[in-house]
Structure formats: structure tokens, C-alpha cells
């Protein structure tokens, strides 16, 4: 194997800098003692204080967590079933149903759910519509992680369970479930992170009924930028960092499923 040339290292290093520098600036300005994100004045924690006294922001955070928890739990149940069905049974249309919502531009799912909720279900947009929308786009991610895990298992284990007289339920409860549990947990963490992060689909399905952290951040960016945005961004980055590391620890196949 040849050593990478210095030019390659330089080019790759510049790209990594391009990936991290903007986020570093956001974090740095969250501690800056100035209303403007323009120059460094001095260190302060005031923006975090402002953040924790901002009622709307706290409500949005609570909503985001509630939505992420409910949606990721439901998506884990449905996504695990979908992953098992895709692995075990040859439904041609199931992969289409599961993968397409993940693969197409988010705005298409957003507007179609908007029309569906208002026109077909006559539902008032709010918490319920957002949760249903988040389940819809999360199922695919859980299903993919679970299916990758099932592909990695030896089919003989299940045959052995059957030969020993286990019912399908017993096989699932005592053989399949413990084996795919790490993948399910990784999928759930991923669904949780995706739900917490989602802006586009939430934007179309939330109406005026409910605000989430990304919606709150969006309106702050559009109307009046203060370093409070930097503070909430920094905290959110920290939270996602923990979630991603936890998910990759839980399941080695997680990263491949994500990519």
C-alpha cells in the first residue's frame, strides 16, 4: 500500500476543515458577549440564561422530545415488522413502500401529508399529524437497520428452533428478538434523532397548532437572529452527538444502514 501523497492529505484536510469550521463558529459565538455574530467581545453564559428563560423555546423543546419519543417508539415496532417481512417474505411492493418515503425529496412527503390530513381526514394540524408524519419517514430507517442485522444471522438458528418444536411466537420471543434487539435499539435512536432534527416535513404538517425546536429555530433565523440561536444549536449538537455515538456503539451495522 502506497502512502497517501501530501497533496491528498492537504485536500482532505481542507474538506474536513470545511465540515467543522462553520459549526465551531456557531458554538464559539454562543459564548460571545455581544448581540451580533460579528466579532469576539468576551466570554459570557448569558445566551444560555436567556434560552432557559424563553418560555416558547422550552415549550418547543418539550414538544420535540414528546414527538420524537412517541414517533420513534411506534416507528421501531412498525419498522422492525417491516424489516422482518422484507427479510423473510418476498413481498415485491414492501421494499417500495418502505424505502420510497426515505428516498424522495422531503417536501413531497410534506405536502402530500398536508393535503391528506386536511382534505381526506379533516384533521386539525398539530401534535397528532406531526407524530404520524414522523412515524411515516422513520419506518424505513428502522426497517433497513433491522434487515441488515437479519441478513447477517445464520438461518440455521431459526431452523433449529423450529425443529425443536418452537411456535413462531416462541421462535421470535426467545431467538429472533434477543438477536435483533441491538439493531432495534440503534434504529430507534436513529428515528429519535431524525424526528428531533426534522424541519421540512414538520413545517408542512404542524400548522399553527404546535411548535418544535427546528420550527422555533427557523422562525428565529427568519425574523431576528440573536446568539440565543447559537446557544440552542450548541445544546442540540451535544444531544445529537450523544445519540449518534450511542447508536454506533449499539450496533456495528448501524453506520452502513445509515449510509
Amino acid at each position: 500500500m502506497t502512502r497517501p501523497s501530501p497533496w491528498l492529505l492537504l485536500a482532505a484536510g481542507l474538506v474536513y476543515a470545511f465540515l467543522y469550521l462553520p459549526l465551531a463558529i456557531v458554538v464559539a459565538y454562543s459564548f460571545n458577549d455581544s448581540r451580533l455574530n460579528a466579532e469576539w467581545v468576551g466570554f459570557t453564559l448569558d445566551w444560555y440564561r436567556t434560552l432557559f428563560n424563553d418560555g416558547e423555546m422550552l415549550l418547543a423543546a418539550r414538544n420535540s422530545l414528546l414527538i420524537a419519543f412517541t414517533a420513534s417508539l411506534s416507528a421501531t415496532v412498525l419498522g422492525t415488522l417491516a424489516g422482518m417481512a422484507m427479510h423473510r417474505y418476498r413481498f415485491r411492493f414492501l421494499p417500495f413502500l418502505v424505502i420510497t418515503p426515505v428516498a424522495m425529496p422531503e417536501i413531497l412527503l410534506g405536502v402530500s401529508l398536508l393535503v391528506f390530513f386536511l382534505q381526506a381526514l379533516h384533521l386539525t394540524l398539530g401534535m397528532v399529524s406531526v407524530i404520524l408524519a414522523h412515524i411515516t419517514f422513520s419506518i424505513g430507517f428502522v426497517a433497513i437497520v433491522v434487515r441488515v442485522r437479519l441478513h447477517g444471522l445464520d438461518e440455521k438458528i431459526f431452523e433449529a428452533a423450529r425443529d425443536l418444536g418452537a411456535t413462531p411466537w416462541q421462535t421470535f420471543r426467545w431467538v429472533t428478538f434477543p438477536l435483533i434487539l441491538p439493531a432495534m435499539a440503534a434504529g430507534m435512536l436513529m428515528a429519535f434523532a431524525l424526528s428531533l432534527d426534522d424541519f421540512v416535513i414538520t413545517f408542512f404538517t404542524a400548522g399553527v397548532g404546535v411548535s418544535t425546536l427546528p420550527l422555533q429555530i427557523y422562525s428565529m433565523i427568519k425574523i431576528a437572529v440573536t446568539p440565543e440561536v447559537n446557544a440552542v444549536s450548541t445544546l442540540l449538537m451535544l444531544l445529537t452527538l450523544v445519540l449518534v455515538i450511542a447508536a454506533s456503539r449499539l450496533d456495528k451495522t448501524f453506520m452502513k444502514g445509515a449510509a
Partner: peptide, 27 residues
């Protein structure tokens, strides 16, 4: 690989907002 994934795990709006700061007229 993890170093590539990490920034993209942070909120999408935050990553866009970062460029709002960098490209701002006073920067």
C-alpha cells in the same frame, strides 16, 4: 468516517444558519 458523519448529525437548520453567520456582510 465518524468524523464525516458527526457534523451531518447536527440539525440541518443549524448547518445552514452557520453559513448565514460566515457569509454575513460584517464578517
Amino acid at each position: 468516517v465518524l468524523l464525516v458523519i458527526l457534523p451531518f448529525a447536527s440539525n440541518f437548520l443549524i448547518r445552514v444558519y452557520a453559513w448565514m453567520i460566515i457569509l454575513g456582510p460584517q464578517q
